[in-house]
């Protein structure tokens, strides 16, 4: 009897409190269940993190210990890093990647914001057709235009410079236009109308009202493009022959070919180079994590 009385309200209570979908019956069972799930996820999480830790660890090991698969190096050898900097112009590559990355990100953010504002604020003939065209180019494989684009840059005499790595970004990028348009559309139109009444011009609407309000979106676009530029290998392969102009991915590939596979077998240098190429992105990610997660989640929601 007493048992029955107890069970009823307990069930009711847990049913009312429960915000998540699990189908466990008692709180105790739910704790066990959650504990089980957390453990399972934690194991997967270790598998995801381990390769990165392995890489850092390997970059600090003497050459003959790299493959011992021990996570904490038995002998720490930070000289691998100075060895790398002594053998290749790694810092130059690093600087090149920074310059190219910032140029690519800055230009694409400004131009895409401008175009996105055009689509979001104005009503004009041809808008829907043009926007469909924007969406269409998102599906276009970059490889299709790769060769003529190279010929264009060659025509301009810029095919052996870093310019082709970022200059197309001056002309906005479909994906970011799409992303920013969503943000602009979410702004209350009254804000703009009020500014219009106060005598604000169209460019003022964009620059002084829409842009400041969309700072999170601008940051998302900037960091996305910076990352894309930082990891791009195919363009540097096409355009850069001079080692002094290499960006990091191209440099890292050169290091791999020279000291890793098929080369001198100085893997410790390859490891150090990989770590140094990765760290800036990891730092960027931790500084701007919120924006990364928001930006990626937005993509999916609007699919």
């Amino acid at each position: 009897m007493t048992q029955m009385v107890h069970v009823e309200p307990a069930q009711e209570q847990s049913g009312g409190q429960r915000q998540r979908p699990p189908s466990g019956t008692s709180p105790a069972r739910r704790v066990v269940r959650t504990g089980f799930i957390v453990t399972a996820v934690a194991i997967v999480a270790v598998t995801f993190t381990y390769p990165l830790l392995w890489l850092i660890s390997a970059s600090l090991k003497p050459r003959y210990q790299i493959f011992d698969n021990v996570l904490v190096p038995r002998e720490v050898q930070p000289e691998n890093y100075s060895g790398l900097l002594d053998t290749v112009p790694f810092l130059t590559w690093f600087g090149n990647s920074m310059v190219v990355g910032v140029m690519a990100a800055l230009t694409v953010t400004l131009s895409s914001a401008m175009v996105a504002f055009g689509f979001a604020y104005f009503r004009f003939p041809g808008r829907n057709v043009l926007f469909l065209l924007v969406l269409g180019t998102m599906m276009l494989p970059a490889a299709v235009t790769m060769i003529p684009t190279f010929l264009i840059w060659q025509e301009f005499g810029l095919s052996q410079t870093q310019v082709p790595l970022w200059a197309h970004n001056v002309f906005a990028s479909a994906f970011y236009v799409f992303l920013m348009r969503q943000f602009f559309l979410s702004l209350p139109r009254d804000t703009f109308e009020a500014a219009r009444v106060d005598g604000c011009g169209y460019f003022g609407l964009f620059w002084r009202i829409a842009m400041p309000l969309c700072r999170p979106a601008l940051i998302v676009v900037f960091i996305f493009e910076f990352r894309a530029s930082w990891t791009d290998l195919i363009r540097p392969l096409i355009y850069l022959q001079d080692e002094a102009l290499y960006t990091l991915p191209r440099g890292l590939k050169a290091v791999l070919d020279a000291f890793g596979q098929g080369g001198e077998q100085r893997w410790e240098i390859v490891m150090a180079a990989s770590v140094l190429a990765t760290i800036p992105l990891i730092i960027l990610f931790f500084c701007a994590q919120r924006y990364f997660v928001e930006g990626i989640a937005t993509q999916g929601r609007k699919g």
Partner: peptide, 16 residues
Amino acid sequence: VFYLPAMTPTVAVGVL
């Protein structure tokens, strides 16, 4: 944690 590997430069992923 799951997203972290996606931040690794693609060439470094290949090397790794």
